[in-house]
């Protein structure tokens, strides 16, 4: 590859870039973005979520780290959420056998550089996944989990703080905020 400025990448070109890249790359409708790097706090929080989710869903759902690519076919987004929960058989994209298309729960740890995007446009992309039942957003600045759920009447969002427990019906799941943030030094603290 020796071309200069690209205005639009095909998905195949994205996969080639991903293979060669030093970074995790996100693809959205022809544009490729570098995904944010992990601060120590971000890495701690992501690990805590994996541990708590893994224990809570043992034997019922698969809990995968940020190595797993998720694809939103409806909006042509491929990205690497901080954690992905898949309940039932794993479905992958016809364009990309390594990208899962049917997550039940997605988890993102925000960072200073990504918070607006995570809570805005990225969340809008995720909501177009038919299988998705909840998105859990962990704040990097305070001990707070934002839970965005899809009950029958439409998407709803609620914050949970220390001492509180996030409860989901589908999959059945309870996550203590304290368990996620135990021992984690947040940014700015």
């Amino acid at each position: 590859m020796s071309t200069g400025r690209r205005l639009h990448y095909s998905y195949e070109e994205y996969l080639a870039c991903l293979e060669a890249s030093v970074l995790k790359l996100e693809y959205c409708d022809g544009t490729i973005y570098a995904m944010a790097g992990a601060t120590p706090a971000h890495a701690e929080l992501a690990a805590a979520r994996l541990r708590v989710l893994g224990q809570a869903l043992l034997g019922r759902c698969r809990v995968c780290s940020s190595d797993l690519k998720v694809r939103v076919e409806a909006s042509d987004l491929s990205t690497f959420p901080d954690a992905t929960v898949v309940c039932g058989d794993v479905c992958t994209s016809a364009r990309d056998a390594s990208a899962v298309t049917n997550p039940s729960v997605l988890v993102e740890v925000t960072s200073r550089s990504t918070e607006d995007y995570d809570r805005g446009d990225k969340l809008s992309h995720y909501k177009q996944l038919p299988s998705l039942r909840a998105v859990i957003l962990g704040s990097h600045r305070s001990r707070r989990l934002s839970c965005v759920t899809r009950p029958p009447e439409g998407w709803a969002e609620r914050d949970f703080r220390p001492g509180e427990t996030v409860r989901l019906d589908e999959p059945e799941l309870a996550i203590d905020v304290d368990a996620i943030y135990a021992g984690v030094t947040l940014e700015g603290m």
Partner: peptide, 26 residues
């Protein structure tokens, strides 16, 4: 890998080059 900063703060990939490629990029 060459990136440009977008207005939303994200780094957009302009191009990537490997091995003996000749790079011309912003």
């Amino acid at each position: 890998e060459a990136f440009a900063l977008e207005t939303d703060g994200r780094w957009k990939l302009l191009a990537s080059f490997v091995d003996d490629a000749v790079a011309r990029v912003a």
